[in-house]
């Protein structure tokens, strides 16, 4: 592989496996996943429910340990990082968007969006100023003192996007970001992701089985039963499992 290609590589995994449970009831969720993603792209991972997408995302961003295999994220071998270093690595390099938003209900949206900066040691003032600016940019400037429960699902997911981007992580991990949203809100969220989150030095990984948003992807990786089956261009992809 050339130096230029390596520089362009955001994620590279080889032979990643992960099982849950032991003995007879053990579930082999990942059976040797090889996966590559590049800087500047939005790559989707699709596949039927239970095929291991979420598990793969978890080991990819280091919230869960893989059993075997190698995982490199922007050149860092995260398999061999200690727990503390791995946690700090996530704090600095990974932004998260979840299906369930996971906003903290007792904090207003500015506080929610500022959390990653606070975790990384920024002052409250710096963090909240940055959060206000970013929330205004994504169209929530009028609701800055609102609490998550006062917002619609689409608006909450936009707060989550602000939270995921505030510390300018290089890797953005999104697990079913539109699954809890109606079609219009889902499209808005994806437009926002595509427009604000995608940058030449950043890689956005979106797990989904929402075929309405496939066209936002640069590439689509199809997973099946714990392995990556194939990679497609969005226009050429016609999922068989739907």
């Amino acid at each position: 592989m050339s130096v230029a290609a390596e520089k362009n590589t955001a994620i590279r995994t080889r032979g990643v496996t992960k099982s849950f449970g032991r003995g007879e009831s053990a579930v082999k969720a990942l059976k040797g996943v090889d996966f590559d993603a590049h800087c500047g792209e939005l790559i989707m991972i699709v596949g039927p429910s239970g095929c291991g997408k979420t598990t793969f995302l978890s080991v990819l961003c280091g919230t869960m340990r893989a059993d075997e295999g190698s995982i490199e994220v922007f050149g860092t071998d995260i398999v061999h990082l200690g727990t503390g270093t791995l946690t700090a690595f996530r704090g600095q390099n990974v932004g998260f968007i979840f299906q369930q938003f996971n906003l903290i209900p007792t904090w207003n949206i500015v506080e929610n969006a500022s959390v990653p900066l606070l975790i990384n040691g920024a002052s409250r003032r710096t963090a909240e100023t940055a959060a206000r600016t970013l929330l205004a940019e994504i169209g929530l400037g009028a609701r800055l003192s609102a609490f998550p429960s006062q917002l619609s699902g689409g608006q909450q997911q936009r707060v989550a996007i602000a939270r995921a981007l505030i510390h300018e992580p290089r890797l953005l991990i999104c697990d079913e970001p539109t699954a809890s949203l109606d079609a219009a809100s889902g499209r808005k969220v994806m437009e926002l992701l595509k427009g604000t989150a995608c940058r030449p030095d950043r890689c956005v990984v979106v797990v989904t089985h929402d075929s309405r948003i496939f066209h936002f992807a640069d590439r689509i990786a199809e997973m099946e039963d714990g392995v990556m089956k194939s990679v497609h261009k969005p226009g050429e992809y016609n999922p068989q499992y739907v």
């Binding site: 946690t87 996530r90 704090g91 996971n102 959390v115 990653p116 975790i119 990384n120």
Partner: peptide, 16 residues
């Protein structure tokens, strides 16, 4: 615990 786990995912260490 779910919220605390979210903070953990986002990089908050056990000490914090």
């Amino acid at each position: 615990v779910r919220h605390l786990a979210a903070l953990k995912a986002m990089g908050a260490g056990n000490v914090l």
